[in-house]
Amino acid sequence: MTDLADQSRPRSRTTKATEVETGWHHPSEHRLRRLVLEHRAALGTLAVFLVMMSIFIAANPAVFMTWSIYSSVLTTLPVALFVVVPLVFVVTGGEIDLSFPAVMGFSSWTFALLVQADFDPFIAMAAAILTGLVLGFCVGALVVYAGLSSLIATLGMNFLLRGLIQIVNEGKSIALVTLGDSPAYKIFSSEILGVPVQIFWAVGFVIFATLLYNRHRFGAHVKAVGDNPDSAKQMGINVKRVRVKLFVFMGIGAAIGGTFSTMINFTWWPTAGDGYLLPVLASVFVGGTPTWGGVGTVVGGAIGTLTVAFIQTGVVAAGLSGFYVQFFNGLIIILSLVGHRWNQERYR
Rank of each mutant, 00 (worst) to 15 (best):
I311A: 07
F310R: 00
M125D: 01
Q312G: 14
G330S: 09
S68K: 07
I57F: 09
R243L: 11
I69R: 05
G180M: 10
V299P: 01
H340M: 07
L77V: 07
A254I: 03
V144A: 04
C138W: 06
A224G: 08
G275P: 01
A112K: 11
A202S: 08
V242Y: 04
G330V: 12
R31H: 04
A318W: 03
A255Q: 06
K245Y: 09
I123E: 08
V20L: 15
T75F: 06
Y276K: 01
L87T: 12
I207T: 07
L176P: 09
S28Y: 00
G273D: 02
V286L: 11
V222E: 10
Q116Y: 05
G180Q: 15
G330Y: 08
F137I: 07
L193Y: 15
S54K: 01
I199N: 07
I174T: 03
L148M: 15
T267F: 06
L176Q: 10
V280P: 00
F200E: 05
G251M: 02
V316F: 04
F266I: 02
P10C: 12
N158Q: 14
G301S: 08
L142H: 04
P229C: 10
D118E: 14
A47I: 15
R9C: 09
D181C: 01
V338Y: 13
F247D: 05
I252R: 00
K240H: 10
L81Y: 01
G339Y: 12
I96T: 12
Q344D: 10
L130M: 05
A146M: 14
L212V: 14
E29D: 09
L179G: 11
G273T: 02
V88W: 05
R9P: 03
E19S: 12
M65F: 11
N214Q: 14
E191P: 02
D118I: 04
Y276N: 02
G23C: 12
S72K: 09
I69A: 01
K223S: 13
M250A: 15
A128V: 03
F89E: 12
N329W: 13
V286K: 05
G253E: 05
G171K: 06
Q312S: 15
W109R: 01
H39W: 12
L4N: 10
M250W: 02
G94K: 09
A309T: 03
W109L: 15
A141Q: 02
I165H: 00
F247P: 03
W201F: 13
E21P: 02
L114Y: 01
R217W: 10
N60V: 02
F328M: 10
H221M: 10
A124Q: 07
F100L: 06
T15M: 14
H216N: 15
S71M: 08
A224K: 06
L37C: 00
T297I: 10
E38I: 09
L212K: 08
I55L: 14
M52L: 14
T178E: 15
W292D: 11
T92L: 06
F218E: 07
A102E: 01
V308E: 03
G156R: 07
K172Y: 02
V299G: 03
I237P: 04
Y185Q: 15
T289I: 05
P279C: 05
L278A: 11
L4E: 10
L335Y: 07
H216K: 13
V244M: 12
V325E: 13
T18I: 14
M263L: 11
F310Q: 03
G226W: 07
L133Q: 00
I129V: 15
I192V: 14
V83T: 12
L50V: 14
L98P: 09
